[in-house]
Design a binder for these strands. Structure first.
Length: 283
DNA sequence: AATACTGTTCGCGA
DNA sequence: CTCGCGAACAGTAT
């Protein structure tokens, strides 16, 4: 699932599979998945693969970039050389590749193929000049990278300048890049903070704990290759493992393994499923 | 069969 | 500015 650890896992594999290859042909089956004319990138070489929060950028040799957001169900799947071992395709790739949910196909030299599958069609790929992409897509409004630029001091400033519930603040992509629903829930449980607590009312110790907790869950997520609880798969067609290590996400009704006193509860905050331990995370 | 829920983000009206 | 809500879609679980 496309939060920072998932997108970073995709990025690493794409880097391995795609860099150095030429784009020979592009097929677009669903125009909304790739609005720009695909002929702009035919013959271009794939130079680098970057990640900004939950956004991927495939930088090409001709001043253009492919900017990609997979949203909830977008999948980038590679088939071709360097795919070793050629493991089983995850059954989470509904319809297969290519299949009824394959909206864009990139044919590379030497037989490599990159498929963009997306059941819900919320994800998108844009072809934009590299510089412009950094200015005008979501990348331009992206907040700080939690594992790079987000210092404890900056984090404190962000939290202390908002009256919104802390969970919404850490998920605000214009402030902090890449934290989504799963990792936000897990980090708040780890730091023993109620998701609804007003951000600026957090104490210094809570802020520090949350800062550490965010680092911890994101690193764990990356280490486990992301969470395949739902439809996330890696470009090699495999799955991540974080879903077996979630702290609280998806565990409504289970007894808290830290305090053993209460069961996890769930409510909706701004439309998103929000989990908490009534004992560990007091409002 | 019908309804609720799902990782994300944007735009609207209050 | 903030908030909640519906929309963009389609599949799965209950």
């Amino acid at each position: 699932m496309p939060e920072l650890p998932e997108v970073e896992s995709i990025r690493k594999q794409l880097e391995k599979f795609l860099v150095g290859h030429l784009i020979k042909k592009v097929e677009v089956n669903w125009r909304k998945s790739l609005p720009e004319r695909e002929d702009k990138i035919i013959g271009a070489k794939i130079e680098k693969v970057h990640r900004f929060g939950k956004i991927l950028e495939i930088e090409l040799s001709n001043k253009f970039s492919l900017v990609i957001h997979v949203k909830m169900t977008g999948q980038l799947i590679y088939r071709g050389p360097n795919l070793e071992p050629a493991g089983q395709l995850s059954r989470k790739i509904i319809g297969g590749v290519p299949g009824k949910h394959t909206h864009v196909v990139f044919y590379l030299d030497k037989g490599g193929i990159l498929y963009f599958n997306d059941v819900r069609k919320f994800g998108w790929i844009r072809i934009i000049e590299t510089e412009k992409a950094h200015r005008e897509t979501m990348i331009g409004k992206m907040g700080l990278e939690p594992l790079k630029d987000l210092t404890a001091e900056k984090f404190e400033n962000i939290l202390k300048s908002s009256k919104r519930p802390v969970k919404l603040v850490i998920m605000d992509q214009t402030k902090i890049a890449g934290v989504g629903n799963i990792y936000a829930n897990d980090a708040l449980w780890l730091a023993k903070i109620h998701p609804k607590k007003e951000s600026k009312k957090l104490g210094n110790e809570e802020i520090r704990d949350l800062y550490d907790a965010i680092h911890k869950v994101l690193k764990k997520g990356i280490e486990k290759g992301g969470s395949s609880e739902n439809s996330y798969v890696t470009p090699d067609g495999g799955e991540g493992e974080y879903q077996h290590f979630t702290l609280i996400y998806g565990k409504e009704g289970e007894v808290c393994e830290r305090c053993h006193l209460t069961k996890f509860e769930k409510f909706f905050l701004s439309g998103r499923g929000t989990y908490f331990c009534p004992n560990c995370q007091k409002y």
